[in-house]
């Protein structure tokens, strides 16, 4: 995963609250290997009408090249499926701005280089206004923690650790391996505590 500081692109509005991960990617697509790409699954059923055709008024259908989404509160609530993030990332999305995010989703996003930009409710309302009539060019700046859409700039909140990860594109496994001595020491300390390791006799494998 490559780190980034500023990303620029087209912004669109998804004016809905509680866009859960089941909507972001329906369960039936989740047996697909990632190598086949998940972009085509993004909001698969939401963006289609009853006959299964792409709804022309759905913002992402009119603007599939959007890289910044502005959405309602509680974006990415629901299941832990990281496939929801894969669908966004594979469709080219780099930033989702919303007043709140599902906790697990936000962590998954950062692990895949996608910025969950948390904006104040009032600022979300302003962004919604700017985008209510169409799209606009936008930019997210991790250094300044600033989201700009057209000529409106609003600050966003982001956990400092997550910001560092996005900036550097760090991978946790490498980071953690620097602590392997501490991990081994911890393991040795708890080894004989009852209950910490299940009874081997009971384990049938």
């Amino acid at each position: 995963m490559a780190g980034w500081t500023v990303t620029r692109g087209k912004a669109v509005l998804l004016p809905m609250a509680n866009i859960d991960t089941d909507q972001l990617i329906p369960a039936r697509f989740m047996s697909t290997p990632r190598t086949q790409g998940y972009g085509r699954f993004l909001l698969h059923d939401v963006r289609r009408n009853a006959r299964g055709e792409p709804a022309p008024d759905f913002p992402l259908n009119a603007h599939p090249d959007a890289t910044i989404l502005v959405a309602g509160r509680n974006f990415g609530s629901g299941s832990s499926r990281e496939a929801a993030v894969y669908a966004l990332v594979d469709a080219g999305v780099r930033v989702v701005a919303a007043p709140s995010f599902g906790d697990i989703f936000a962590g998954n996003a950062v692990n895949n280089g996608l910025l969950p930009a948390r904006v104040a409710e009032a600022d979300a309302a302003l962004l919604t206004k700017v985008l209510s009539t169409g799209t606009a060019q936008g930019a997210a700046d991790l250094g300044a923690r600033l989201l700009t859409i057209a000529d409106l700039s609003v600050p966003f909140e982001l956990d400092e650790v997550w910001r560092t990860k996005l900036l550097n594109g760090w991978d946790d496994i490498d980071l953690t391996r620097q602590h392997s001595t501490e991990i081994a020491a911890y393991r040795a300390r708890i080894q004989s505590d009852p209950g910490r390791f299940p009874d081997d006799n009971a384990v049938r494998s």
């Binding site: 832990s80 499926r81 990281e82 989703f105 895949n112 946790d172 496994i173 980071l175 953690t176 991990i183």
Partner: peptide, 22 residues
Amino acid sequence: FGIGATEVAHVLATQTIWQRKP
């Protein structure tokens, strides 16, 4: 607590997980 796939891979590889205390 529930975790995403990147975190599952991390736990598989290290038996640990990074978390900020809620």
